[in-house]
Every structure is written in structure tokens, then in C-alpha cells.
Write a protein that binds this DNA or RNA. Structure first.
Lengths: 240, 240
DNA sequence: ACGATTTTGTTCTCGCGTTCACAAACTCTT
DNA sequence: AAGAGTTTGTGAACGCGAGAACAAAATCGT
């Protein structure tokens, strides 16, 4: 997994309330299922088996069935799942039946790209503000929005009832921006800055770190290369 | 974790060779430790305890010690770890003592941002080519590099011994681009396109998906809000 | 020199997540 | 109507990862 939850340790068993809690690993896959269902729906497929869905989502069918069983019993034995019905149920479970207001902090290279990314709006996430600490950039228009000053954070968060923020600042600024976000009432943060953020327990942080991903790939790549060398050694040693 | 390995199922226990295999969860944290060590080194700290390191990396100290123990015994009891020595050892283990050539495919908003991102080069990842299928963009300069045509992929990969590629195309194009990359000999792929890629077993794919991350945050956010409502209900019902 | 203190490396235990395998439930054919 | 064929939902087994806890090893103070 690329990202980590920094708060909320427990899975469903530690839930103080008795209500259905969905395992974290399952939650992380629901959006993938949703995408697969949307794709099938666009292809006018009205019913799909767990095997079909699993293939489309790139997972094993038993896992998919167990994941879906946490939401309820939405399938029909001997038939499969109604694509549109299941799609709605997952969307509702994730919370995509309502719109979410998102602000992006730090409009550098990455912030720019995120502001122009169309994939957000299509899923019910609306970027309502772009903030930057550089006063020279305030007022500049990016992706149909004007950049606001970081000083207006509190007002912006309150006016738009923002719960989710995206940090795309340099690493040095990330913790301070994070603190201000939390103070303003934001309780979910997507962090692109290569920095460890410390937040109060009620705030969720997810991290996306490009250079970490590359390093993980490099590790395995190096390992493959070593394996080849070792195989050659064995070959020379006449072991095979 | 946000991303998934699509190939290579086993952890260290299934390793056919008897050599030390590092658990996947540990591999994913090594880059974080590396960053923490670099930061300490920049602050002229020469020695650090597991507690210090763990705090800087945002993990628990027992976990950190166990992770490091997979690499070897690089600490000194009663003292701690030599920052620069440990840093070198982790870098070597990950494979950062060599340079990695990386190509980026799909120079849209995101590809643009990635091409300009300075965080790659600083960690030994050198972007050697930018590719796009849109012939109108070929030749355009981005971040000091000229965009090449996708048709030149094979030659570029071979000339630069590229093992790692970044896919930043729209979802529709991702699988085809992926197939061509694999055919050209690339065996590690970082995928930003919101699509499930299918690859042969020897190829590693890691996925970074912004909209999935937001959806996971939305789920928890919704859950927090429901919890508040439930608490209010209990209050009204006189349960407290 | 030796006990007190610090801190690592490792063992052990527990819980989560994955997968197998099968009974239950539904459809279809005859 | 009944048996054959499908496909879901779930119980059970298993392996990996997290964290507590402790023994081993180093330093420090006297």
C-alpha cells in the first residue's frame, strides 16, 4: 500500500458502536469496484457475476464477494449482481451521493495539475478554492478558479463547509499548512508533500508520495537484476 | 496502502532462494526512514536512537527496529544508530547507489507536473525521456526535455536502459501504452491512470490514484458525520 | 572493576486480511 | 415438478504484520 492512515488504528472489531464497520482494506477497494461497475454500465452490461467484476477490478473473486458481503447482500445466487443497483449501493456507502467540497493548498507544478484534473468533479468532488502563500500568485486564474491567499483559509473553509483538503506545498511548509487546516476545521487531508504530518486523532491523513513509489519499484528492480546475476553464477558453477 | 503490487505474490517465506527477503511492508517504509535520516543528517545529527528515528518517520519504535533488523545489525546497543552509516546502508538496500533512468508517457497536466518535479533527480531517478502519442506535441520542450513520439519507445528504452516507466495518460490509453512498455523491456511501472493494468508476472506495477484516495477520505468523513448524528440521537433518546 | 543505565535485536502473541471450499439459493431445462 | 447447473455468501484455515516485552550488549559513573 502506498498510503497510510495516520490516525484511527482500529478495524471494525474495535468499533465502540455496534454498527457495521467495514474493514479498511475493503474500503480501499470499494472505489475500484465502483469504477469497474461504471465501466460495465457504460458498456450496457446490466448484470455481472463476481467473477466478471473481479476480473474488471483486477482482484480475486472470493475477495470481491467477501468485500461486498460487508455492505449487505446485494447479489442473487445463481445470477450475479445488478450492475446499476450495486453501483448505487457502493456509491452510497462511500458517501458519493453527496457532494464534497475540496480545497487545494500550494499551486505549484502539482497543484496546477490537480486544479485542472477533471477526474475530481466527475466523482462528486468539487474543487471550491485554490490557496497559495505566495502573494504574487494570488488572483491568478487556474482551471477556472482564482488563487486565494492562505490568510483567507478560515473564511473559505467555513463558507464552503470544506471537510477535505489537498496539500501540494513543498515539504517545509506542509506541517504549518496542515496545522492551519486542522484549526480551520478540516478533518480529512490528502498530502502530496514528502513530509510526515502530525495531526490530532480525529483527523484522517492519506499520503501520496511519488518518490517513495519509485524507490519501492527500484528495490524490486534491483532484486530482479541480482536474481539474474545469481542465476548466471549458478549456471557457471554448473549447478543446473 | 494506496497502491498494490500486481505481480509477485509471496513475501520472504516463499522466496525460492534462501537469501534475505525483506517483507513488503518493510520495503514500503524504508524510503520514509531514508528521508528521516537525510533530514537528521542535514541538521548535523550524527547519532540517533530508534525512538528518535521512529518519531521523525512517524512510526512506532519497535516497528522501526524490527524493520532495520531485516537489513542487518547496523545499530549499537546502548547508543543508537550512526545516521550517515545507516543512511548509506538503506540507500544501498533500496538500490539508490545506482542511477535509474525513468521515462514518462503522456504529457498532459499531470505528466507536465511530473516532468518538472525536482524530487526525482534528487533521489537518483533521472527522467531521460518524455513521450506522447499526440504528434502535435512532439518536439515541444518541457522541463528541459523535448517530447518524443511514442513510436520511438523501443529505441529510447534500449538506448537508456530504462527499467522504470511512469504512465500519465488517460485511462483509455493506459493498457495499450503498458503493453508497449512491457514489449520494449520495461519491467517496473508507476501508473497514474485510473485503470487496472494487466501485465505479465515479471512486471511490477504500482498504482497512484487520486480519486480513490479522495473517496477513501470521503468514506471516513461521512462516517464521522454519521457518528455525530447518532450521538445526537442517543442524546435525544435520553440514553446518556 | 562493577553495578546502573541505556538501547538494540528478537521472541512471542494477537489480530487482520486473504483464500479455500462448501452449503444455500436461484434459474433453466425437460 | 424435479433435477442439473450456476453463483452467491460465509465458515474455517492460514500467513503476514504490529506491538509488547525482554534478554543481550554497550556506555557511564564511581
Amino acid at each position: 500500500m502506498t498510503s497510510e492512515r495516520s490516525s484511527r488504528k482500529g478495524g471494525r472489531s474495535r468499533d465502540p458502536r455496534g454498527e457495521r464497520g467495514i474493514p479498511e482494506a475493503t474500503v480501499a477497494r470499494l472505489p475500484v469496484y465502483l469504477r469497474a461497475l461504471t465501466s460495465l454500465s457504460d458498456s450496457d452490461v446490466s448484470t455481472a457475476s463476481s467473477e466478471d467484476l473481479a476480473t474488471a477490478a483486477g482482484v480475486n473473486s472470493a475477495k470481491l464477494r467477501k468485500d461486498l458481503s460487508y455492505l449487505g447482500t446485494y447479489g442473487t445466487r445463481g445470477v450475479g449482481y445488478d450492475v446499476n443497483y450495486l453501483r448505487y449501493q457502493i456509491a452510497r456507502e462511500i458517501g458519493l451521493t453527496q457532494d464534497w467540497s475540496v480545497v487545494i493548498i500550494g499551486i505549484g507544478n502539482l497543484g496546477h495539475a490537480l486544479a485542472n484534473y477533471s477526474g475530481f468533479a466527475s466523482r462528486g468532488f468539487q474543487v471550491t478554492a485554490l490557496l497559495d502563500s505566495d502573494s504574487a500568485r494570488v488572483g491568478e486564474a487556474v482551471g477556472g478558479l482564482k488563487i486565494s491567499s492562505l490568510d483567507d483559509l478560515d473564511a473559505i473553509v467555513q463558507d464552503n463547509t470544506v471537510a477535505i483538503a489537498v496539500i501540494a506545498t513543498p515539504a517545509e511548509a506542509a506541517q504549518e499548512v496542515c496545522d492551519r487546516l486542522v484549526a480551520a476545521g478540516v478533518s480529512s487531508i490528502l498530502n502530496f508533500a514528502p513530509a510526515v504530518l502530525s495531526v490530532p486523532g480525529h483527523v484522517d491523513v492519506r499520503k501520496v508520495d511519488l518518490s517513495i513509489e519509485l524507490q519501492i519499484l527500484a528495490y524490486h528492480e534491483q532484486r530482479k537484476a541480482q536474481g539474474v546475476l545469481a542465476d548466471l553464477d549458478e549456471l557457471e558453477a554448473g549447478a543446473i
